[in-house]
Amino acid sequence: MSMVLPAVRFLMSAFVVFIVLLMGGSVVPRNANFRETPDGVPIYVVSNGFHTDLLMPLYETRSGIRWLDTLGQPALTAAFGAHEYVAFGWGNEAFFLESYAGGFPKAGTVARALLPGRTLMHVDFYRQDPAAGKHVVPLRISVAQYQELSRYIARSFQPDSAGRRVLRNAHGYTAEDFFFLARGQYHALRTCNDWTNQGLRQAGIRSALKAPLAASVLFQVRRAAARK
């Protein structure tokens, strides 16, 4: 027993230090010198308070990127061709699917999400741009940054043997959102918000050193939007 208690204390202390270091990464910026491009491409980082998405123009003329062409789903092209924006998010498959109808995933699902698990891409169509607010941060980025961010998003889908994006479900939470198969595994050190944060970082946009939470992502992009 005398050996057990010190070991438990050590593990608890190590866990606390790990959490402090993890959360501390939220306030350390990457690409700290990022400035918005005044006439750049409009994108948005949107959140529901727990999860973050990257909102992109459905068709961006200067880059020529057409997301409906990238998704390659004729039914979606027919239904959403007149929409203006599309949001992309990445996350744990079980967590996503158990969130239908506004429900919260089971405790066991949340616990298992700490370990490596399968993932999905969440794709949500917007008729128009959202209003800036507590959970919506608009940014203007260069065409080159937009192209790099788009490549990051496109690479996150898991294609079939013919290179096509694979639709997982006929619908998502509403009639305007859908799930696709995704690459990579979700776990405690690679969360949905880390996915968003990494995309911003790779595109040269201000981001956090580590972003396990939605607040971590929003903290840095708000500072990016405030710098003129």
Rank of each mutant, 00 (worst) to 15 (best):
L21W: 13
Q185G: 01
A79E: 15
A94D: 11
L114N: 13
F10H: 13
A182S: 14
S26T: 15
F95R: 02
G108T: 04
A113N: 06
G172V: 05
A7I: 15
A211P: 06
A182C: 09
C192N: 10
A82P: 09
G25I: 01
G199C: 00
L76P: 06
P138D: 07
M121F: 03
D39R: 07
R112S: 12
V4P: 05
S13E: 07
Y126D: 02
A226D: 14
T70S: 09
A175S: 12
E84K: 14
A132Y: 09
L181I: 01
M3S: 14
M23F: 12
L209Y: 13
Y146Q: 02
A225Y: 01
S63F: 06
T52N: 14
I65N: 07
F104G: 02
D177P: 14
V17D: 05
M56L: 15
Y100I: 05
P130D: 04
Y152I: 02
Q198W: 00
T191H: 00
Q185E: 10
L209N: 07
V137A: 14
L11Q: 06
E98P: 03
G64K: 12
G163W: 06
H122L: 06
Q198I: 00
F80A: 13
E36R: 10
G133E: 11
S207G: 08
L68E: 11
L209A: 15
L97G: 06
G40F: 07
L218V: 03
V45N: 02
Y146S: 03
Q185M: 03
L115H: 10
L200A: 05
G163C: 07
K228Y: 04
F180T: 11
T70N: 06
L71A: 09
R206L: 05
V16A: 15
A113W: 08
G81F: 03
Y152F: 15
P6C: 15
R35T: 11
D194C: 00
E98Q: 14
T174P: 13
L189H: 05
F80R: 12
G108L: 02
A14M: 12
A101N: 15
L209G: 08
Y59K: 13
W90P: 02
E176G: 10
S2V: 08
L139S: 11
R140Q: 09
A79W: 01
A175I: 07
R165V: 09
L139R: 10
L58G: 09
M56G: 03
W90L: 01
R201I: 00
H187W: 15
T191R: 02
Q202K: 00
S63Y: 03
F15G: 14
G117N: 09
T191Q: 01
G49K: 08
Y85K: 05
D69M: 02
D160G: 08
A208E: 08
R9D: 08
A175T: 13
T61M: 05
A94Y: 03
R168Y: 14
G49R: 06
K228W: 05
P29S: 11
A203E: 00
A226W: 02
P130M: 06
S26Q: 07
R223C: 04
L200P: 05
V217Q: 12
Y146C: 02
L149K: 01
V136C: 13
V110M: 12
G117R: 03
Q73E: 14
K228M: 06
P38S: 09
F179K: 02
S2G: 04
R183W: 00
K228D: 05
M12E: 11
V123T: 10
Q202G: 00
G24E: 10
F80P: 06
Y59R: 15
L11N: 10
A14I: 01
V123K: 07
